[in-house]
Design a protein around this nucleic acid. Structure first.
Length: 550
RNA sequence: UGGGGUAUAGCCAAGUGGUAAGGCAGUGGAUUCUGAUUCCAUCACUCGCAGGUUCGAAUCCUGCUACCCUAGCCA
């Protein structure tokens, strides 16, 4: 499971290993990933997915994919396609699609069981009244006047609720626990509410739906989940989770809820509400916009599932709230991509270079290695001629200290070609450098073993007459500030610029990744690329760029 | 103001009474036809704070502090 040498272990593994030793769950490990189908998955979900699926794998168990569809008003099957695509893309598989709603019958029977045991009652308080009766953080609640209804009356009323005899909000079923509990979740929590809504799975069969706190432990128990892993905010709900299973009493080996800290990343937001806002307000192209921290966005951005799994492995699992530096995510994708993509020459902000002593009307084919570190990836031929384009960043008219690329009088290697020396910089009326005049040394042709002299800089280039114009999209972070918030959305989070690439880039397939020489890693956009317009999305920069002052 | 959690380097994170793992970031250096990669070195006398117990404490005890969650008929 681990893609690196880091021993991937955490406090949850420790709990499981102890349970395995004591035989608590009969040596079984069954986990689950239970999304509510109400939005796209993001990198935070990836942490939960990796945790649940790989923990199950690690101990020879299994992980269920189950939709927590207990609230028909909020959910939409529209999302299940993207959820499953994303989980599958991350590299995980599940037996079959499970729905919490498939257990509605059992849940109903479990509620009846509670009523029979005197542990649940039908309450007629309105939502406002109930809030008032609940008390506050510091004050105990008051018992509902309906709390003392008889079992027979509750059974009858609950049946009528189910039969649709009451309006939404008119009645609810509540657990009878303790209105004075310091844990507000235990102050007679609502277990079933009335909702006249069409459910995607059960249609109009039900007009009462179980609440999460009641439904979830039962879903887990029915599936034989051994370890129910969820996020920290459910810590206070655990006593209720345990109460439900204990009081219903049908499962001798109830699952154990374990909480961990959800993922936060610098420079972005994980809140579904905020992400949806970006989509709805048109600030991004959609849920799969490459700037989005969604799985779909990261995929389109060019991230690999391997990189994301590696990331989830490296960040660890603990209980302290933390914000992981997005630099670690970037490291993971660089680490994965460096050994699997080919390099291509691409220049941005091009400057034309005329090699004055190179013959006109001659195009040479230069052999370029596809991956400097992996000779087995072979090489390709790239045209070279008298006029070439170099990257705007590779020339400085007045070099700063430590700059060793091109400047007047300096000699550099053109990657895969010759040494050239800049003899003159030609400027336009605005004092901008437009063309460089250089001379080349035929003796220095790449690959001929020239050792006469060394040069400190190597720059890339594309031959001017055959250069392929391309569109390069550079992405910045979603947030300019590390503290997340609505007003910090970076308005300049995408920069689109014209670049020129070597001609064979015309064959780039959508989704194909490259390292653009010196620029970082890019992917041919699967949605925007067509024969006439190649668009490449920046996945991530090279680790460090040149620092002007050293 | 009740209850529940969490505090170990710039960011994550191991560690459960025997003298602070690892990763990212950073720094210095070597190699380099990518200022990438690779390699080597370096990076917490101290674990939120203050006391205490102990031969010995990040780990145990006491008292503080900070931050997070919690008063949906959401999940």
């Amino acid at each position: 499971m681990s893609e690196n040498n880091i021993p991937s272990t955490n406090f949850i593994h420790a709990i499981i290993e102890k349970d395995l030793e004591t035989g608590k769950h009969g040596g079984k490990v069954i986990t689950r990933f239970p999304p509510e189908p109400n939005g796209y998955l993001h990198i935070g979900h990836a942490k939960a997915i990796c945790l649940n699926f790989s923990t199950a794998q690690k101990y020879g168990g299994k992980c269920n994919l189950r939709y927590d569809d207990t609230n028909p008003i909020k959910e939409d099957v529209e999302y299940i396609h993207s959820i499953e695509e994303d989980v599958r893309w991350l590299g995980f598989a599940w037996d079959k699609r499970l729905w919490a709603s498939d257990y509605f019958d059992t849940m109903y029977e479990a509620a009846v069981e509670l009523i029979k045991k005197g542990k649940a009652y039908v309450c007629d308080l309105s939502a406002d009244e109930m809030r008032a009766y609940r008390g506050s953080l510091t004050e105990p609640g008051k018992e509902s006047p309906y709390r003392s209804r008889t079992v027979e009356e509750n059974l009858h009323l609950f049946l009528e609720m189910k039969e649709g005899k009451y309006l939404e909000g008119e009645k609810v079923l509540r657990g009878k626990i303790d209105m004075a509990s310091p844990n507000i979740n235990l102050r007679d929590p609502i277990i079933y509410r009335i909702a006249y809504a069409e459910h995607h799975n059960t249609g109009e069969k039900w007009c009462i739906y179980p609440m999460y706190d009641f439904a979830h432990p039962i879903e887990d128990a029915i599936e034989g989940i051994t370890h129910s892993i969820c996020t920290l905010e459910f810590e206070d709900h655990r006593p209720l989770y345990d109460w439900c299973l204990r009081e219903v009493g049908w499962w001798p080996n109830p699952p154990q809820q374990i909480e961990f800290a959800r993922l936060n990343l610098t420079h972005t937001v994980m809140s579904k509400r905020l992400l949806k806002g970006l989509v709805d307000d048109g600030l991004v192209e959609g849920w799969d916009d490459p700037r989005m921290p969604t799985i779909a966005g990261l995929r389109r951005r060019g991230y690999t599932p391997e990189a994301i799994r590696d990331f989830c492995d490296r960040i660890g699992v603990a209980k302290s709230n933390s914000t992981v530096d997005v630099g670690l995510l970037e490291y993971c994708v660089r680490e994965d991509l460096k050994d699997r993509v080919e390099s291509r020459n691409v220049v941005e902000n091009p400057i034309k270079v005329i090699i004055t002593n190179y013959p006109e009307d001659v195009i040479e084919e230069m052999e370029m290695e596809n991956n400097r570190n992996l000779p087995e990836m072979g090489s390709r031929m790239v045209p070279f001629g008298r006029e070439i384009l170099i990257d705007g960043n590779d020339f400085m008219e007045v070099p700063s200290k430590g700059y060793f690329r091109l400047f007047p009088g300096n000699e550099v290697r053109l990657k895969g070609a010759y040494f050239v020396t800049c003899t003159e910089a030609i400027k336009d009326e605005n004092d901008n450098v437009t063309t460089l005049l250089c001379t080349y040394d035929p003796a220095t042709k790449s690959g001929n073993g020239f050792e006469g002299r060394k040069v400190k800089g190597t720059i890339h280039w594309v031959e001017a007459t055959t250069a392929l114009p391309i569109t390069i999209r550079h992405y910045d972070y979603l947030l300019t500030d590390e503290e997340s918030g609505e007003n910090r959305i970076n308005p300049n989070s995408m920069e689109e610029l014209i670049g020129y690439g070597e001609p064979n880039l015309a064959d780039a397939q959508p989704g194909q990744r490259f390292q653009f020489f010196r620029h970082g890693y890019y992917i041919a956009d699967s949605q925007l690329t067509n024969d006439n317009d190649k668009v490449f999305n920046r996945i991530v920069d090279l680790k460090s760029s040149f620092k002007v002052t050293k």
